[in-house]
Nucleic acid binder design. Sequence first.
RNA 1: GCGCCGGUGGCGAAGUGGCAAACGCGCAGGUCUGCAAAACCUGUAUUCGCGGGUUCAAUUCCCGCCCGGCGCUCCA
Length: 492
Amino acid sequence: MTLRLFNTLTGKVDELAPADGKALRMYACGPTVYDYGHIGNFRTFLEIDVLRRFLLLTGVPVQHVMNITDVDDKIIRNAAAAGISIQEYTAPFEKAFLEDLDTLKVQHPEQMARATEHIDKMVELIQKLAEVGAAYQTEEGSWYFRLSAFPEYGKLSKKDLSGMEDGARVDVDEYEKDSARDFALWKAAKPGEMSWDTPIGRGRPGWHIECSAMSMEYLGPSFDLHTGGEDLMFPHHENEIAQSETVTHQTFARHWMHVRFLLVDGRKMSKSEGNFYTLRDLLLKGYKASSIRMALISVPYRHQLNFTFEGLVDATAAVERLRTFADRLATGKFDEGSNDELQAAAKKARADYMDALANDLNTADARAPIFELVRAANTAIDKGELRSGDRDAIQLVLKDFDAVFDVLVDTDAEATKRALAWAEQAGRMNEVAPDLLARQGLSDETIDALVAERTQAKQQRNFARADQIRNELAEKGVVLEDSKDGVRWKRK
RNA sequence: GCGCCGGUGGCGAAGUGGCAAACGCGCAGGUCUGCAAAACCUGUAUUCGCGGGUUCAAUUCCCGCCCGGCGCUCCA
């Protein structure tokens, strides 16, 4: 099964397969580690995780490289304001970012590359550009890319810049540029700023050059796929193409994937709107990591996602339904044999699921057959018609579902504990939702003991006491389920 | 302003030129249960932003308008 993925470069859905027939070489624009990641950032990384996991599920090995931008204007400014080095400033945010990826079960790329550790590669690339006349240095020592050296500029974002008036938008600080649209490759050192002493002068890299240098370093001059948020299409990716192809004369990345932005409550997410959330904000509000993952990947990457707290609650319920079912299947006792209808249903569900994902990663469509199978199987279990062979067949479907969605295994409590530990250490306990704290105070052992007491009360037909215990637990977010096989409890 | 994308039930959201408009959540009623929960069943858009057009037939194609978003500047 080959993935059909929209390609920004060609403007249509193209098949995505490794050019070398072995591993799919992909470069994903990563974070600038100047702050904690917000849910918009993570929507992009989650959608790329879906892509990566689907490729792996279809048997395509992946060579996935992601940059970590640990030097840029904001970092330099913030580090200076804090009176620390940029390394000291970015290290905790990088650590937090990786921890957040783990919280959301985003698989790590095969290779992560820090910009500051590849300065030499960037300098080499700028030198090559200078050799062919595509880069020039200004009097104050900055280097710029000469846009006129790359006639294909605009081919990714489909922009025709020929009509653009040179000089229409000249920034007063950049008056030395030959053309207003020429972009910075290297910024000359300013007094007191972090800089590197290199053959092309003392300074620091422009933003775009790192991705060209590092992708070529790890993936070669031409590779299969380049990804990022939709905002990066222009100018970042366009600039990467110009820098790279001017030197290599090869197609930089053959396939480009851009993830759509999300909205929050139907509005653009922004700090000034007051609808800006980091992952940690949500965890401290008491939402589960799995709910966030499910909510963010349930809308296909090419569509705008409207993030709401109601949507998060919906996702929680959806995940709960799946987990309850998976548990029912795993712990139930079923007769030997198999049921033709269920075997067929499982087969169809798996095929529909794979087809939906192969169709430009349509995650919304992919969920449907899974839920349909859950209903069919639940019905069969209720009627006593599900056999052990059916359980096995359905579990295989769930396994493939979870190979991409990864919400069935419950690690939410650990993620929340980690967030709380961070809040404690960062002095942010005041941001923690009170009911989350109340729930944390209840240990599994205490719950088990109360459940046992309730069971005893029930056996003595002391329903008043039994209900009292159930209500107490419910107030602390613990839900009980009585069944023939005993009592199950779960934290909401 | 220019370019691009979207506007489907109470909410999220899939989808198609024409058979009953997926799926999830929610809500109402029922089965089960000591009562719940879970699970199942039934119901929940004669309708797909608004106005025109093309067509035997449009939510699906075309035009205009309104609304939201993105890009044109740093941004996932």
